[in-house]
Nucleic acid binder design. Structure first.
Lengths: 212, 212
DNA sequence: CACATTTGTCACTTTAGTTGACAAATCAAG
DNA sequence: CTTGATTTGTCAACTAAAGTGACAAATGTG
């Protein structure tokens, strides 16, 4: 078993997550989890970087090395929390990948429902303003919106590959923005909202996605 | 939030696994998992330490640092695999913690069944002799037996705290030895075997565990 | 305004993991 | 049973990751 190049035999070897990669993810997850738990007790403003490091069993320095600053950490944290919703959305879309309209409605509904029930989101909304993390999905929400839009774009494109990229990007970004808006400021039931959004975007979808 | 001594407040703070600990466990798990998968393709004798390290995405040296030698690694691996069975056993015991006899029968049965269905155990038994890992649970099985005995002792003692320690240790060790024996060389159905063992050990249990 | 805390950064130490090398043991082939 | 190749186990030297203590600058808070 010499150590040159393509070793042994490529016998359908499943891609194994190498330790180094897994360890990095573990580090991030540990810190994220610590933060989420701590957020149940204290507001984001009250939690210092030193706290997070200590709770994760890591030095403050490693925390800063992994995430450049307090803000970056918060961004990453919000995105990680958001991933849960995007997974729900992805699932909902895949169940209706033939009919874009139904898919949109189902996905939007699922998103709003999941979000409304999520403890972290409730915390985020019960926020009195300056103290918490709310700005991270609104005034300073650029990274989150960009991330979610890209994620959603991929979901849509994987279901409707014939669609035009920029059309989908536009749709995805606006959907993300609407979703955030309706989560932070709900109006009516989730299904009503979903139906309304479909009414609004249905025609565009008809043109850009369906009839290509 | 000064950084002295017992910080903040001991507000029922759940014990969070610190990163360093989790990372170490991750390292071991990564290597164990790699080995288990590889064992489906090649025999233990054919798998070199270099292979394991490479599959785990780690240098051969770290592998040796974590486990002193090939043998120690194998021991640890077998024990990790065995942990699954002990969990099943623990569960079975806890369901009958009032009646030792029933607990024993159920646990023994569950153990034999779980083991018989386990892919790794099947591999271990389909072993032609010198090539595989079989010696690790028999002729060189001291660490495994000791580990399993201690584990089982704790399970029993947690259910029957009034029992005498050495009585339980004896019982546990013999149960472990019998279990290994009946796994490697089955005879009759699992329930028949379990009943037979109960018949054998029932009187001892009656004396040592029940009537104290 | 003055005081205390927190952030972000730096230079330094320690620790974990990598690399390449090597003798000794093991094994396969002739 | 001897040769040659492979593998094991160990080493010292190197690199990367994390920890430590200190500090100025920013930020709050009374």
């Amino acid at each position: 078993m010499s150590r040159r190049g393509a070793d042994v035999a490529p016998t359908a070897t499943r891609v194994r997550t190498p330790y180094a990669v897994a360890a990095r993810r573990l580090l991030r997850d540990t810190l994220f989890d610590a933060t989420r738990d701590e957020l149940r007790l204290r507001s984001w403003a009250d939690i210092t970087m030193a706290d997070i490091a200590r709770l994760g069993g890591v030095s403050r320095q490693t925390l800063y090395k992994e995430f450049g600053s307090r803000d970056e950490f918060a961004q990453a944290f919000v995105i990680r929390e958001g991933e849960r919703f995007l997974e729900a959305v992805e699932h909902a879309v895949r169940e209706h990948f033939r009919d874009p309209s139904t898919a949109l409605t189902a996905a939007f509904d699922v998103f709003l429902t999941t979000a409304a029930e999520d403890p972290f989101v409730r915390l985020l909304l019960s926020d009195d303003g300056t103290a918490g993390m709310l700005p991270l999905v609104t005034t300073q929400g650029k990274p989150v919106v960009e991330w979610a839009s890209e994620r959603l774009t991929n979901i849509i494109r994987s279901g409707w590959p014939q669609s035009q990229l920029d059309d989908v990007q536009l749709l995805a970004e606006c959907l993300v923005r609407l979703a955030i808006s309706y989560v932070t400021l709900p109006k009516g039931s989730t299904s009503t909202t979903a139906a309304a959004v479909l009414k609004l975007l249905g025609p565009y979808i008809e043109r850009a996605i369906v009839s290509v």
